[in-house]
Design a protein around this nucleic acid. Sequence first.
RNA 1: GCCGGGAUCGCCUAGUGGUAGGGCGGCAGCCUGCUAAGCUGUUUAGUCAGAAAUGGCUUCCGCGAGUUCGAAUCUCGCUCCCGGCGCCA
Length: 428
Amino acid sequence: MLTTKHVRDNIGAIRDSLKKRKSEYPIDELLKLDEELRGLKTKLQQLQARRNRESLEISAAKKRGEDTSGRIAALAGIKGEIEDLEASIPTYDERVNFLLWNMPNVLDESVKYGRDETENIEIRKWGNPSGKSAGGHVDLLENLKLIDIERAAKVAGARFYFLKGDFVLLAKSLERFALDFLAKRGYMPLQPPYLMKREHYRGVTGLGDFEDMLYAVGRPKESKGEEKDEEELFMIATSEHPMAALHAGEVFSAKELPIRYAGISPCFRREAGTHGKDTKGIFRVHQFDKVEQFIFCRQEDSWKMYDEIIANEEEIFQALGIPYRVIEMCTGDIGIVAAKKVDLEGWFPSQQKYREVTSASNCTDWQSLRLDIKYDDKGERKYAHTLNGTAISIERALTVIAENYANADGTISIPDVLVPYMGKSKIG
RNA sequence: GCCGGGAUCGCCUAGUGGUAGGGCGGCAGCCUGCUAAGCUGUUUAGUCAGAAAUGGCUUCCGCGAGUUCGAAUCUCGCUCCCGGCGCCA
């Protein structure tokens, strides 16, 4: 479990990382409250020790048939002191825990400082971006009757879509291609629950995401009288989240690791704070499908796994024949969970720009500390490292494929690797 | 949804108000010439002291309250699992 001991043991690295982020996280408040809290707990424990010792003496005396009423009365006083102390502890505990759970991860040393996404760093490019400025995916797809945005808006509101006809088959072909690709590399296909409890959700992502990213659902509990709380569940924003929680509270043996999963699920996102961005088409939507890589591994292996996940992402886009570049996130765009993060950006001819199509993160022990995911390494309990990375974000991949494979006659060719799944080489 | 049974260390299990015990597995060590066995220790988390080895104390029997000098054990609420009935794509 995540405790302040972890913070005290790593305080140097934590301070350096917060400084680099220019974070306003109140680390000094946390340390001060923690010290006071530990003082109270020490006092409590001393009282408990006395209570336990004297209770035992009472037990022994009773067995000898002695009168113990005097001693029992004396212990009642200690009981009151213990109760008072116990009552004062939760106030501290609550604040300390709030701060702990929302403490940003320690960044990898290689992460560069930057204010926001404009200061991310390009580290690689692949393919030959097309110079031709084809129409955007919206016109292209609507002309072929492959998507229907207007009626989706009627039915569900903005940022929803109907996929139609061959485009549905292309979406399913992409999913199956990605699953097969990962299965060959030892990733177990996994279809998770699409709804998740708060107690696990708060261990996989930062607090801000609850408001900005997640849809919550609830239903009234059966109540016999007065109003009762609603049962609260969150719709998953990515299968990364239930996959991370999958092994919460478990202890692996070191031999079992790494464990690789290929999650497949719809993803639901509120996209709060993105008003006006990418409002057309299916590039940024409230619901999309995604095949996601997730790895639990030993601490010393996580950077090797990080490279593996990124290599998988690149190979998938190379197989699809989509030009891309790899962008390393700067401190201003990385968020609190990851220690290091990259995005793959695919080439969109209509915008003459690279746009995000996948992402990969090494979360080190941020999630496993909060979800209590450990492994036994020669008798020593260690926190596993977790990593996640997109294999294919379906709707975004559909847009970038449509634009790059659009023909002059308005049809769309199918990338060679998908033809066996589609059963045809052209749409339209 | 209803009725019944259950949840104890990584796994299995004993324990009906008075120091949570045993087995298996894991780890460390010892012993032994035979592919393995035996023996000893250790195997929830935290905290205090110490340079450290280590030692003290607290905590842990699904979760949360309550009763009690003292709760795995008694009471109430909740979660999940198993069996049966009902409902159901």
